[in-house]
């Protein structure tokens, strides 16, 4: 592919999004340190089924290697990254230059989010930035595609991005989040990756409420692996607790990891006919994903 050439051949993720095929993305976290081998190995094992890998950006405000570096390493291996970019650590200059840098390295997919507050992470004494919010960051990126930076200055060489954002079907209350989602769509996103869901019913409600939006939803899936993880997710991550029936199955299982994969696969199999795709957040279960895909019939 000719980098920077808007007419050049585009990636698998972009094509599948536009052709409305079922998409599978998997989240990878850069290392805290410099050891990338294992992460890249995991990605390699998933090459066939996975269309693109989200590379997180100091996720949960925990300092790690930059997603730009890991995205580049994936790209070098012929794998497709989706670079996650938060508004927490960079002002409008740094955000724009990050987008241009990534594009120069052949990275075209991005997922934008506000980013967890530094107080929640491992550097709580750091200064939060939030110069832009997620909606503004989308506009900023779309602006670059028109050949101008935020200040209205002309660019030499114009990028072409595939831009997505995040949403939580289980948000409580949902309406203010839906307003924000509509603004993200209006600002120019093509896909949404959702927070993990654990049952069908609230998802269906959410999809119905957002059916008028011209955007593709990749549904968040996190296989549960232990009773402790259920506890942790309920307390630290999720807005609504994991359904009792699901938690019970994990608690009672002889092999909770297998059970977690089966639960996730059952859900995926049930909903795959009416969603645009899946966004898997494996949290340490990367090696089990081939089994997940097989059980889900993907």
């Amino acid at each position: 592919m000719t980098v920077g050439d808007p007419e050049g051949p585009k990636g698998r993720f972009r094509n599948k999004l536009r052709e409305k095929d079922l998409i599978v993305t998997v989240e990878l976290s850069p290392p805290k340190g410099t050891a990338t081998e294992e992460i890249l190995l995991h990605a390699d094992l998933l090459r066939e089924k996975v269309d693109a890998f989200n590379v997180t950006d100091n996720q949960r405000a925990i300092m790690r290697m930059s997603p730009l570096a890991l995205s580049h390493l994936l790209k070098e291996r012929g794998l497709e990254p989706i670079l996650q970019l938060t508004c927490r650590d960079r002002n409008r200059l740094a955000l724009q230059s990050e987008l241009l840098s990534a594009y120069a390295l052949g990275i075209e997919n991005f997922c934008f989010m506000t980013g967890d507050h530094p107080l929640l992470g491992d550097h709580p004494t750091g200064k939060p930035v939030y110069d832009c919010d997620s909606v503004q960051l989308i506009s900023l990126a779309r602006g670059l595609e028109r050949g101008e930076d935020f200040a209205g200055r002309k660019l030499s060489g114009v990028p072409s991005f595939v831009i997505g954002a995040v949403a939580n079907p289980l948000a409580e209350p949902l309406e203010p989040q839906l307003i924000k989602l509509r603004k993200k769509v209006a600002a120019g996103i093509e896909f949404i990756q959702t927070q993990p869901i654990f049952d069908q019913e609230p998802l269906e409600k959410f999809l119905e409420m957002t059916s008028g939006l011209n955007v593709r939803f990749l549904i968040g899936i996190t296989p549960l692996k232990s009773a402790r993880m259920v506890e942790f997710m309920n307390h630290k991550i999720l807005v609504k607790p994991i359904p009792m029936a699901v938690a019970e199955r994990i608690n009672k299982a002889k092999d909770p990891v297998r059970e977690g994969i089966t639960i996730a696969a059952e859900l995926m199999a049930k909903i795959k006919s009416y969603v645009s795709g899946f966004h898997i957040m494996p949290i340490g279960l990367e090696r089990e994903l081939p089994e997940l895909f097989e059980q889900a019939g993907i």
Binding site: D116, H117, D133, S134
Partner: peptide, 20 residues
């Protein structure tokens, strides 16, 4: 807590802020 201008972040839970 983040001085956002376009609506709540994903950390907003039951009307409370993600940080406290």
């Amino acid at each position: 807590s983040k001085g956002l201008l376009n609506g709540p972040c994903g950390g907003s839970k039951q009307g409370k802020c993600e940080i406290i």
